[in-house]
Design a protein around this nucleic acid. Structure first.
Length: 124
DNA sequence: ATGGTGACTCGCG
DNA sequence: GCGCGAGCCACCA
C-alpha cells in the first residue's frame, strides 16, 4: 500500500454517514488488515484538534462514529472525551445509553467492500 | 533494531 | 454479563 495506514483509516471513517456507527475491528477488516483493530483505535486517538499541515483532524474526521465491537464507547482513560463522543452521537440521532452503549442492531454502518475502498484510496 | 503503548477483539471461566 | 489473558498492529522514541 502506498498511503499510510492512518490516512486510510481516516478516509474510511469519513464515509460513515451521520446517525450510524461502526467498530474499530470492522474498519480494520475493510482495509484488509483483519487484526489491526488496535491500530485503528490508535489512529483515531492521535487526531489533533487542528493541524495546519494535515487535512485530517478531529474536526474533519467523524471519530465519534467509531465504537468497539460490543457497541460501547471505548475511551476509558478520558472520561470527558467519552462523554463528548456520546453527546455528539446523540445530536446526530444515535441513541447512547447511560453506560455508553449503542445498539449495533439499529445503528451499525455495514461499511464498504474492498472494491469501493480501492476507489476511495485512489482519490475519491 | 527493539521494545513500549493503546479509543481492540476473541475466547474462556 | 464481566473480568482476564493472550494475540495483533502501526507508531514512535
Amino acid at each position: 500500500m502506498t498511503t499510510n495506514f492512518y490516512e486510510q483509516v481516516y478516509k474510511v471513517v469519513q464515509r460513515i454517514p451521520p446517525g450510524k456507527v461502526t467498530s474499530y475491528g470492522r474498519i480494520a477488516k475493510m482495509l484488509g488488515h483483519h487484526n489491526a483493530a488496535r491500530a485503528v483505535g490508535y489512529a483515531l486517538s492521535s487526531l489533533k484538534h487542528s493541524d495546519s499541515d494535515h487535512p485530517y483532524t478531529s474536526a474533519t474526521v467523524p471519530w465519534q462514529r467509531v465504537v468497539n465491537s460490543q457497541g460501547r464507547i471505548s475511551i476509558h482513560h478520558r472520561e470527558a472525551t467519552a462523554n463528548k463522543q456520546a453527546d455528539i452521537l446523540r445530536e446526530e440521532g444515535v441513541e447512547v445509553s447511560e453506560n455508553l452503549y449503542v445498539n449495533m442492531n439499529v445503528y451499525l454502518w455495514e461499511g464498504l467492500h474492498l472494491l469501493e475502498i480501492d476507489d476511495i484510496l485512489a482519490g475519491n
